[in-house]
Computed example of a mutant assay.
Amino acid sequence: MQAIELLLNRRSWGRLTEPGPDKCDLETIIQAGLRSPDHGALHPWRFIIAEGDGLLRLGDIYQQAAVANGADEAAIQKAQNMPQRAPLVITVVACVTPDHKIPEVEQVLSAGCAAHAMQMAAQALGYGGIWRTGAMSYDDKVKADLGLKGKEQIVGYLYLGSLVNEPSATKKLDPDDFVSYL
């Protein structure tokens, strides 16, 4: 796929199935994330991979957070099943270095660029993906159970796998709705 075609047709797929990226494709996807813009060469990101039994462990972490937050039984079950939406989930973590000359927001944006680059790499390799956030991205118990420290924060969860359905055409947006000139 040509790079410009890939970028112009970027989309999210919420329905994913097996197979997920194999070891070689996953390495390529991660390498794409590691090439993200990185002002100050801080490498302000890390990735937590969940596949196979790791998806079950991630579901248990979500379930325990839902219980701790007083969720009802349906919400607890939903939380536990969330990682099963795809065969592979990458938790993208922004590793913020506080009190650095590079502002914290730029460090978080760099981690966000890594998530985007990995989603684009997955799409270029023929996989679908969706970048999800939600309550589990901001929950202190989830962050602790995933081993986040200090000012680290979850930028999102990148769900990757094969498409269940053929994609429909992407909706074209009018640049005039978003662009102004000085």
Rank of each mutant, 00 (worst) to 15 (best):
Glu106Asp: 12
Val108Asn: 03
Gly129Ala: 14
Gln84Ala: 12
Leu88Gly: 04
Glu106Met: 00
Ala68Gly: 08
Val96Gln: 03
Lys151Leu: 11
Lys101Phe: 10
Leu109Val: 12
Arg85Ser: 07
Ala124Cys: 07
Val92Thr: 12
Asp99Glu: 15
Ser110Pro: 08
Gln119Cys: 10
Ile90Gly: 05
Pro37Gly: 14
Asp60Glu: 14
Thr133Trp: 00
Thr133Ala: 04
Val105Glu: 05
Asp60Ala: 13
Leu55Gly: 05
Gln107Thr: 08
Cys113Ser: 13
Gln107Pro: 08
Ala111Glu: 10
Phe47Val: 14
Ile49Met: 08
Ala79Asp: 08
Met120Asp: 02
Trp131Val: 12
Pro83Thr: 04
Gly14Phe: 08
Glu27Pro: 02
Lys23Ile: 13
Ala41Val: 13
Phe47Trp: 06
Lys23Arg: 15
Lys23Thr: 15
Lys141Trp: 03
Gly33Leu: 09
His43Lys: 14
Ala144Met: 01
Ala74Asp: 15
Ala32Tyr: 05
Lys23Met: 13
Thr17His: 03
Ala79Gly: 11
Ser110Asp: 07
Thr91Phe: 06
Ile76Gln: 13
Gly112Gln: 08
Lys78Pro: 03
Arg132Phe: 00
Ala79Ile: 09
Tyr62Glu: 00
Pro87Asp: 07
Ile76Asp: 10
Ile49Asp: 07
His100Thr: 03
Gly147Met: 00
Arg85Lys: 11
Gln84Val: 00
Asp99Pro: 03
Asp25Leu: 06
Phe47Cys: 12
Gly33Cys: 09
Lys101Gln: 09
Lys141Gly: 04
Gln64Ala: 13
Ile130Gln: 05
Pro83Leu: 06
Gly40Met: 07
Val89Asp: 00
Arg85Cys: 05
Thr91His: 01
Pro19Cys: 05
Glu104Trp: 02
Lys149Phe: 00
Asp22Trp: 02
Leu26Trp: 10
Gly40Phe: 06
Met120Tyr: 02
Ile48Met: 07
Cys113Leu: 10
Val93Arg: 04
Lys78Thr: 14
Gln107Glu: 09
Ala117Cys: 15
Gln107Leu: 08
Arg15Ser: 14
Tyr138Asn: 06
Ala32Ser: 14
Ser36Met: 15
Ile130Lys: 01
Val67Asn: 00
Val96Ala: 05
Leu16Ser: 07
Phe47His: 08
